[in-house]
Design a protein around this nucleic acid. Structure first.
Length: 508
RNA sequence: GGGCCGUUAACUCAGUCGGUAGAGUAUCUGCCUUUUAAGCAGAGAGUCGCUGGUUCGAGUCCAGCACGGCCCA
């Protein structure tokens, strides 16, 4: 406290002065005010003469964002959650006493204003204050009014400042909320039941990823934060819920990047009596609808690219994509040695012999994925990299599966579900046997899941959609941190555990 | 984990060849009753990310560390 800047001291001093004058700094008797946007909407078209006819007085509340004082009068802009409106405060109109208090108000304070509407010389709709009142005293100055706040670290750590200062940031998160609503609307209106399944799993499953470990004291049990809800949602299919979806968080203990946050939002849905091909149609329909709701158009712009979400979208098999988009000679595709050499040439050497599918997906990530700007379904993933997907009826080396790519990124993953318990058990066993020291492969077989399949799971298809990436796409955001309110960052100095402890643990 | 870049006032940024720190906004004081990046005059405000090193002297050069960004793994 002792080394607080002058500016903070001044604010506190001012607050004390106000209190001495009997002003309550944090009152709690303010009734919900009218919204700036609602007033603008109704009276935005009224000219001065028309406004003079309006006898009504309006009461608004919001944060002072700009303040221009002229001695015995002032203009200010306040911002509420709907928008902004200009306020005019004149000493001879509000009276000496109120004006004296008003002069102590700062940019950043939240105030309540009541008065009639008029238009200024520059024709801006403005409230002529009859009454101004402090609602919440701000003890910290707002960032610079013109450049706002640019420092990404401050923006992510102190998102509240970012949201106050950067209207486009607030807008992105409003759109995120609309997208979430749109997803719910789509699935509930198509007969899907929204469900919640455990976030803490005693066996890792449903995806290949390193989990976070936590501990339950009373049970004396290590638990994993879920990497995917898949195996539980399919248990619900067994239980008779033919159409279910879950829209919630997954956790993966991996690197942080422009498109990865350790906790992220996933939508998974499962539909009985459908195939992965049906889901391609659903996905097209869903994304097109979301784009229409948000932009009124199925053609959108993302980071300079024009992307057309109008159905139908391109479909390629993984094999075709490697040849046609990735430029891998067709005759090389089944030659592990040559594939390994190609990967090594791309600075991605692989150690040991891998399943063929691993070479393909690695090459795909490097050579094909970044080029898939327009929405593209990639199908026929090798069975050895798709342990939960149904084998293709004609060619059992591949599965009835697709991944969706847009703007060079994976957005969704779907397949016809494997519901033969014998095949599922065999695949689990093979996975565990070949796991080696790969921490991304679940070390334990979920026998209860196999038992569920033994009860009989109806034929079904399921899909997972990366919601954060979808929001990035639809809000033209370059980083996942721009669509998550509080992205994961290292703690600041003095926050959380000591650095030394963390380092020591990391070394073990 | 590796590479590159950044970290200077509350915010946005300058800071030359190593010579004791600058601007705009914000703040404070004075003037100002139609401004909107209001204006005019004046003032105050700094752990130059941290720790060492080189040097007569370091915001500046060197090393390590921290945090962040981007790229790669």
């Amino acid at each position: 406290m002792s080394q607080d800047s002058q500016i903070l001291k001044q604010r506190r001093q001012k607050a004390e002065e106000l209190e001495e004058w009997g002003v309550t700094l944090f009152p709690n008797d303010i009734k919900p005010p009218e919204l700036a946007a609602a007033i603008q909407k109704v009276y935005g078209s009224y000219d001065q003469n028309a406004l003079e006819e309006v006898q009504e007085s309006f009461r608004v509340a919001g944060r002072i964002m700009a303040l221009r004082r002229f001695g015995k009068a002032a203009f200010l802009h306040i911002k509420d959650y709907s928008g902004r409106i200009q306020i005019h405060v004149v000493r001879d109109h509000v009276g000496q006493d109120q004006y004296k208090i008003f002069k102590k108000f700062d940019i950043g304070d939240i105030i309540e204003v009541e008065g009639r509407l008029f238009r200024t010389k520059t024709n801006e709709l403005t409230i002529e204050a009859d009454r101004v009142r402090l609602v919440t005293k701000s003890f910290r100055p707002l960032p610079e009014k013109y450049h706002g706040i640019k420092d990404k670290e401050i923006r992510y750590r102190r998102r509240y400042m970012d949201l106050i200062m950067n209207e486009d940031v607030a807008e992105t998160f409003r759109k995120r909320s609309m997208i979430i609503q749109g997803l719910r609307r789509y699935f509930t209106s198509n007969g899907f039941l929204e469900v919640e399944t455990p976030m803490m799993h005693s066996i890792v499953g449903g995806a290949t990823a390193k989990p976070f470990v936590t501990h339950h004291n009373a049970l004396g049990l290590d638990l994993y934060l879920r990497i995917a809800p898949e195996l539980y949602l399919k248990r619900l299919l067994v239980g008779g819920f033919d159409r279910v979806f879950e829209l919630n968080r997954n956790f993966r203990n991996e690197g942080i990047s422009i498109q990865h946050n350790p906790e992220f939002t996933m939508l998974e849905f499962y539909e009985a009596y459908a195939t992965y091909e049906d889901l391609m149609v659903r996905t097209e329909e869903l994304f097109a609808q979301l784009a229409l709701d948000l932009h009124g158009d199925t053609r959108i712009r993302y980071q300079g690219d024009s992307i057309d979400l109008t159905p139908p979208w391109k479909r390629l098999t993984l094999e075709e994509s490697l040849v046609e988009v990735g430029g891998v000679p067709r005759e090389e595709l089944h030659d592990r040695e040559r594939l390994a050499r190609r990967l090594a040439d791309l600075d991605n050497p692989v150690k040991g012999e891998l399943p063929l599918g691993k070479y393909w997906t690695k090459l795909f990530d490097l050579l094909v994925e970044p080029k898939l700007i327009q929405p593209t379904f990639i199908t026929r993933y090798p069975t050895d990299v798709s342990p939960l997907a149904r084998k293709n009826a004609e060619d059992p080396t591949v599965t009835d599966r697709f991944e969706l790519f847009i703007a060079g990124r994976e957005i969704a993953n779907a397949f016809s579900e494997l519901n033969d318990p014998r095949d599922q058990l065999a695949r689990f066993q093979e996975q565990v046997a070949n796991r080696g020291d790969d921490e991304e492969i679940p070390p334990e077989i979920d026998y209860d899941y196999v038992m569920a399949l033994e009860m009989g799971m109806p034929p079904a298809a399921g899909e997972g959609i990366g919601v954060d990436r979808l929001v990035m796409l639809l809000t033209d955001s370059p980083s996942i941190r721009d669509v998550i309110f509080f992205p994961q960052l290292r703690p600041e100095k003095g926050e959380g555990r000591s650095k030394g402890k963390q380092k020591e643990k990391a070394k073990k």
